[in-house]
Design a protein around this nucleic acid. Structure first.
Lengths: 211, 211
DNA sequence: ATCTAGTTGACAGTAACTGTCATATAAGTA
DNA sequence: TACTTATATGACAGTTACTGTCAACTAGAT
């Protein structure tokens, strides 16, 4: 990683830190881009060079999870059923989504409830990659058969439901993120996603990641 | 319906017509609000009084379906299982989503692919109403039990998948909207959503609305 | 006829972006 | 080390979606 790349990442992180702090204090809508830039110690020009849009400041952190899910799914045992493998990948990823910075993010996000229904867990590119991987596992052609796409869509929607439930609830009273996500993911798994008449391998292997 | 209300609806419809025509011709991003207002024969001020945001011009038509789904679900037979009743309500609604104006809308929407992942089939208020109705059918408390919310979320996600597939495909080559939606909805239905150990009434009553 | 409430357009703002340009600094090359 | 090139920065001007206010107007009820 070159010095330029490191500095780029540093500036980006500093912008996020500044933005989340301001959002949490004053509310998403009340904070201007100029304030964020000032708080981050850069000019507005530079701010816009690093941030595509104000919304993305909040949405990008979750979207980054998409790449992780793809990587995890690629490493799953090949004989595992598509639905199980996908659910486990998502669940494992949600386990790593924690820490002090995440709490800052959550506090910031709570001030922008109108963005709640726009949580896309993943970029279109990563989603397409997931569909291909799932189709391969189901031994179907994603072009002619919509089932792989549907499974990915529903599984991500279920995970999203878990994320939203976790987001809405207060810090300590509600269930943890993995618990929220796992409960929702379970609803999508089932016979429907099998590759053929008698390939049930891996079907019972739910709940292996959480403590 | 008073004259004022009728005129209001008329202006609104005229704005939509103008906007869709311009979007389809020049692309969503290339069309300014002033152009739309001019084409609709009103001032920019009036435009903004009728349109919350440019995005909503495209998104509102689908969102209006939400009210219809709620109404349909309220009229479903009381002994029908929650998942079946909800699926049928959505499917019936999607049947009425057709006509020449819809084709204009589809053409307009195609020029704004970045809005595709923001298709919320329903407003938060209607969604909450659906959750209550579903919870009642499942005999569960929507406050403590997340299953009704999850069923609604997944069912809407499935419908959304159908809508997106229909949207993407060309006018005559792809499957019709109801077919796309029905195929997706079927994936969510199942034993999981039953109200109790032995209440299976209405469980087999899929596919009754489409020809 | 008149009073009230909702509608309209002109106008002046705000804030999120976009594009350009001169300047500075990291990285590759002689 | 010196030189060149690619990239980052900040100042600035512009665009556009959207908001708020105000005076003129019009439908609807009394």
């Amino acid at each position: 990683m070159s010095l330029r790349e490191r500095q780029r990442a540093l500036v980006r992180a500093e912008i996020q830190r500044a933005a989340f702090a301001l959002f949490a204090r004053d509310g998403f809508d009340a904070v201007t881009t100029e304030q964020i830039a000032a708080e981050a110690g850069i000019s507005p020009s530079t701010y816009f060079r690093h941030v595509r849009s104000k919304e993305d400041l909040l949405l990008d952190p979750v979207r980054e999870g998409g790449a992780g899910i793809v990587a995890l799914l690629e490493d799953r045992p090949a004989d595992e059923a598509a639905d199980v493998a996908l659910a486990q990948s998502i669940l494992t990823r949600s386990n790593t989504f924690a820490g002090a910075e995440v709490e800052q993010w959550r506090a910031a996000f709570r001030t922008a409830p109108h963005l709640l229904d726009r949580v896309a867990l993943i970029t279109p590119e990563h989603r397409e990659r997931l569909v291909d991987l799932v189709a391969q596992r189901m031994a179907r052609d994603p072009e002619t058969d919509s089932n792989p796409g549907l499974l990915v869509h529903l599984m991500l929607a279920a995970a999203e439901f878990g994320y939203l439930r976790w987001l809405r609830e207060s810090r300590n009273r509600g269930a943890s993120l993995p618990v929220c996500v796992e409960g929702a993911l379970a609803a999508v798994q089932g016979e429907r996603w099998s590759t053929g008449p008698d390939t049930r391998r891996g079907r019972r292997a739910t709940r292996e990641t959480t403590a």
